[in-house]
């Protein structure tokens, strides 16, 4: 069974569980994901399956995309395609569909996605540097401060925290709990926050480092 799904972040809300505890959840529309291609050790050197998600209009799909989907016997060309590595030969075949049924309520999952872009930011926001006093003529408000020593070492250390681009990074949030599954709408309700803005593409997979219960 493939325990990975491509999906879309819908947004956050809260729900009450059976113990009347209010739980913050992120709603993810996950799947249905058709299997587009199977990779094997014989042909590609490793085992993997290619999953698709969403759809392109026929006029918007490139010929390469359209033919690739047609080869798998899909009616629609997927908008997103992603590969999932497997330890052994896949038991599925192209055209099979993976749905939220791959997960169970209470399961621990990882969510992967691109975080919100924050543009060019200074060190205070980007690296939580404290900054200087706001008033009393300090003239040192949100500046970077010292970046090194003197003639020794005579250079700036690597990884010195400096202003620069923040956000839009590929991030994985590990060990989130699936609170609820709404199978008929392909929805997963996952406890906590996940990377990206509402509507962004995300990947949900069974947790790699989940603690054994």
């Amino acid at each position: 069974m493939i325990a990975t799904l491509l999906g879309k972040k819908i947004g956050m809300t809260q729900i009450y569980d059976a113990q009347n505890v209010l739980i913050p959840v992120t709603v993810v529309e996950a799947g249905p994901c058709p299997v587009v291609q199977i990779k094997t050790v014989e042909t590609d050197g490793y085992h993997a399956v290619q999953l698709g998600f969403g759809g392109r209009k026929p006029q918007n799909a490139t010929k390469a995309e359209a033919q690739h989907a047609k080869k798998a016997g899909l009616a629609v060309t997927p908008r997103v395609i992603n590969e999932v590595r497997l330890p052994s030969a896949a038991t599925v075949k192209p055209g099979d569909i993976v749905t939220v049924a791959a997960f169970t309520e209470g399961q621990i999952v990882d969510v992967l996605g691109v975080s919100k872009g924050k543009s060019f930011q200074g060190v205070v926001k980007r690296f939580r540097v404290a900054g200087g006093p706001a008033a009393h003529g300090s003239m040192f408000h949100r500046r970077i401060g010292s970046v090194g020593m003197r003639q020794t070492p005579g250079r700036v250390w690597k990884n010195q925290r400096m202003p620069g681009h923040m956000g839009s990074d590929y991030r994985t949030v590990q060990n989130l709990r699936v609170v609820k599954i709404i199978a008929d709408k392909n929805l997963l309700l996952i406890k906590g926050a996940i990377p990206g803005a509402n509507g962004d593409d995300v990947i949900v997979r069974a947790a790699k480092k989940a603690r054994k219960a």
């Binding site: 819908i10 809300t13 709603v27 529309e29 929805l187």
Partner: peptide, 12 residues
């Protein structure tokens, strides 16, 4: 509000 989220919380 997003319609999907509205539907999810509607019951509660």
């Amino acid at each position: 509000m997003n319609q999907i989220i509205k539907d999810i919380t509607a019951a509660q």
